[in-house]
C-alpha cells in the first residue's frame, strides 16, 4: 500500500507541475480511522494528503458530473479510480454524461475496501484508532486492544465478489493492475434467495423495507442516480407517495433498481450509505444477473457499447411472454 500511495503522490505532483491538471478528485483520511473522505485537491503542495488503501470505499465518480454542471468546463480534472469507479466512468461516457477527454483517469490497484459495519461487529463497537495491513490480515488497534483479522472477514461483500478490480479505462495506472479478483460467486446470495418461496421473499422485503426512512441516502450516493429530478420527487403525476407507506417505499426501491438495471457497476455505495443497513445490493445484483444472463451485457466495461436497456436483439429470450 505504501508503494501505491507514494507513487500516487509523485505522479499527481508531477501532473500539477506540468500543468496537466487543475484538480484531483481523490481520497484523504477521515476523522475516523478506516473511513476515508473525498478530497478535491487543487495544489501540488497538498499531495501528501492523498491516500489510497482499504478505507477508500466511496465512489468518487458522482462528483465528476457535479463538477461538469457547475460550469468548470475548462478545469482539467483527474480522478482516482478503483475498478468500480472506473466502470462508473465508462458508464458515464456511454451515457454521454462526460466525454473521455474530460477527465484524466488514474487507475489504482484495488484489493478491496473494508466494510465499516463488519469492523464494528468484530470489535464489538469499540473505536479503532490505528490499522495496518499485513498480507491477508488486517491488524486493528484501539485504546485497550489489538486484534488481527482475516481481511476477507471485513472486506465489503461487493469486493469479495468483485470481478473488475481495475478501471477498464485509464490514462495512468499507479503501480500495476491487480490480478486479485473476488473469490465469491457474484450471484450466490441472489441464487440462495431465489430458492425461497414467493411468500418468504415478500416477508423478507416487507421486513427489510419497513426499516427504510426514505432518506434517499442510497440514491444520493449512487453514481448512476444522476437525474436532475428523481421520479419520486416529481409531480404531474406524482406516481408514488413520499411518506413511509410500505407500498410506496418498496415501489421506490423497485423503480430505483429498474432505473439502474444494466447500469449499476456494483460499487456498493448505496448499501454503504444506508443508515439502517437495508440489504440494497440484493435487488441490484438480481437486476445485474438478469441483464447479464439475458442480454449478455455487463455495465461499465465498454464505453462504445449501447447500454442494455437502450438496445435490443430480435432474438432476446421471451419465455415469459404468452
Amino acid at each position: 500500500m505504501d508503494n501505491i500511495e507514494k507513487e500516487l503522490r509523485t505522479v499527481i505532483a508531477k501532473l500539477f507541475e506540468e500543468k496537466k491538471i487543475d484538480l484531483v478528485i481523490g481520497y484523504t483520511k477521515g476523522t475516523l480511522p478506516l473511513v476515508s473522505t473525498p478530497i478535491f485537491l487543487k495544489e501540488e503542495k497538498d499531495v501528501d494528503k492523498l491516500i489510497f488503501d482499504v478505507s477508500c470505499g466511496n465512489n468518487l465518480v458522482k462528483y465528476l458530473k457535479r463538477h461538469r454542471i457547475v460550469n468548470m468546463k475548462d478545469t482539467k480534472v483527474a480522478i482516482i479510480a478503483k475498478g468500480c469507479d472506473g466502470r462508473a466512468i465508462v458508464q458515464y461516457i456511454a451515457e454521454g454524461q462526460i466525454k473521455r477527454d474530460d477527465v484524466l483517469i488514474i487507475g489504482v490497484p484495488c484489493e478491496g475496501v473494508v466494510d465499516p459495519k463488519k469492523i464494528r461487529s468484530k470489535t464489538n463497537g469499540k473505536e479503532v484508532s490505528q490499522y495496518r495491513i499485513e498480507d491477508k490480515k488486517i491488524i486493528l488497534k484501539g485504546n485497550d486492544f489489538e486484534i488481527s483479522l482475516n481481511k476477507s472477514d471485513v472486506l465489503s461483500d461487493f469486493c469479495l465478489r468483485c470481478r473488475y478490480p481495475n478501471a477498464p479505462l485509464y490514462d495512468i495506472f499507479i503501480t500495476e493492475p491487480t490480478k486479485s479478483v473476488g473469490t465469491k460467486d457474484e450471484y450466490e446470495k441472489v441464487n440462495e434467495f431465489e430458492k425461497l418461496t414467493s411468500s418468504q421473499r415478500w416477508q423478507y422485503f416487507e421486513n427489510e423495507m419497513s426499516k427504510c426512512l426514505r432518506c434517499y441516502a442510497c440514491r444520493n450516493a449512487c453514481p448512476m442516480c444522476y437525474c436532475e429530478d428523481c421520479f419520486v420527487d416529481q409531480s404531474n403525476p406524482q406516481w408514488f407517495g413520499k411518506g413511509t407507506d410500505l407500498s410506496d417505499t418498496i415501489i421506490f426501491h423497485i423503480v430505483r433498481v429498474i432505473h439502474t438495471a444494466g447500469r449499476c457497476v456494483d460499487c456498493g455505495a448505496c448499501a454503504r450509505a444506508c443508515p439502517v443497513n437495508i440489504e440494497l445490493d440484493l435487488l441490484n445484483t438480481k437486476a445485474g444477473k438478469e441483464i447479464q444472463e439475458r442480454f449478455g451485457y455487463t455495465p461499465g466495461l465498454d464505453p462504445d457499447e449501447t447500454p442494455a436497456m437502450a438496445a435490443y436483439d430480435a432474438e432476446d429470450k421471451q419465455e415469459f411472454i404468452l
Partner: peptide, 29 residues
C-alpha cells in the same frame, strides 16, 4: 416491442424476486 421486451423481462424478474406472485403481472404478444 423489442425495446419493451427488455423492460418487461427486468420488471417481471424483479417483481417476482421481491415476492409478487408470478401470475399477477403477465405479458403476451
Amino acid at each position: 416491442n423489442y425495446v419493451a421486451r427488455r423492460k418487461f423481462a427486468v420488471l417481471k424478474a424483479i417483481l417476482e424476486f421481491i415476492g409478487i406472485e408470478p401470475g399477477r403481472v403477465q405479458f403476451s404478444w
